[in-house]
């Protein structure tokens, strides 16, 4: 009898434990803590890939040192290519400096490149070569090398990288992220509304289709 109770208790404890763990670890589909962007999208201010007049804009708050952001980057490019003029992607900075020592310098590198019209080229390069610079004790020299490889004016890039203008630009994004209650990257807003991180390209595509339908647009193409 004791054996039955003992093993019954063990079975119940393990089953309850597994249930608890699965519910905690599963990606959340709940509405996020805030539902809309506190800083509106601006074609002048934001870095936008695709048609800036697109029906739906996907805003990503990212950190160049975050491995998950690096994985999502090609998916976003694929989405913009797939939806043509109807979808644009905007990138904003949320450098998690507490856990990523080169997050803020890399955000500044992208902004310094933006001042020479090559934000997205630097954005792609930083994610592609993330493993190369992520753990460097001083990655700025590496970023200057990337700027040179992109054909940027090295001297200007070097001074912009450390300028107050660039530092403030990154900080503005971070402050807006905090105002939206964000504490992790990547965090996405679709059509101005926070969405849980999609778990595949297909999920992303479906969410964009829904946003387009809500907007009253018929998808042109979205393979």
């Amino acid at each position: 009898m004791k054996t039955v109770f003992l093993w019954g208790g063990v079975g119940v404890a393990i089953a309850a434990g597994i249930f608890l763990v699965l519910s905690l670890a599963a990606p959340s589909n709940q509405t996020q803590s805030t539902s809309s962007l506190s800083l509106p999208i601006s074609a002048q201010r934001d870095h936008i890939k695709g048609n800036s007049e697109a029906a739906v804009v996907l805003v990503e708050y990212g950190d160049f040192q975050c491995p998950a952001c690096a994985v999502y980057a090609p998916l976003l490019s694929q989405l913009v290519a797939g939806f043509g003029n109807q979808l644009a992607v905007a990138y904003r900075h949320l450098p998690l400096s507490q856990i990523h020592e080169n997050a803020e310098p890399s955000a500044r590198a992208s902004e310094a490149a933006a001042l020479q019209g090559k934000f997205w080229e630097m954005h792609d390069l930083l994610f592609e070569k993330q493993s190369e610079w992520a753990r460097q004790s001083s990655a700025e020299e590496t970023f200057i090398g990337y700027a040179a490889s992109l054909g940027l004016d090295e001297g200007r890039f070097r001074s912009d990288l450390r300028s107050d203008e660039v530092r403030d630009r990154v900080q503005e994004d971070s402050i807006s992220a905090l105002a939206d209650g964000l504490s992790s990257t990547p965090s996405f807003f679709l059509g101005g509304v926070r969405i849980p991180n999609p778990q595949s390209y297909e999920q992303f595509r479906q969410l964009v289709l829904e946003a387009l339908a809500k907007h009253g647009s018929t998808p042109e193409s979205a393979e």
Binding site: A25, C66, P67, S184, S187, N197, P198
Partner: peptide, 14 residues
């Protein structure tokens, strides 16, 4: 579970 259930584990300051 985090490894298997998440497409990518988001980076978090927590």
């Amino acid at each position: 579970a985090k490894h298997y259930l998440n497409f990518e584990i988001p980076c978090s300051i927590l």
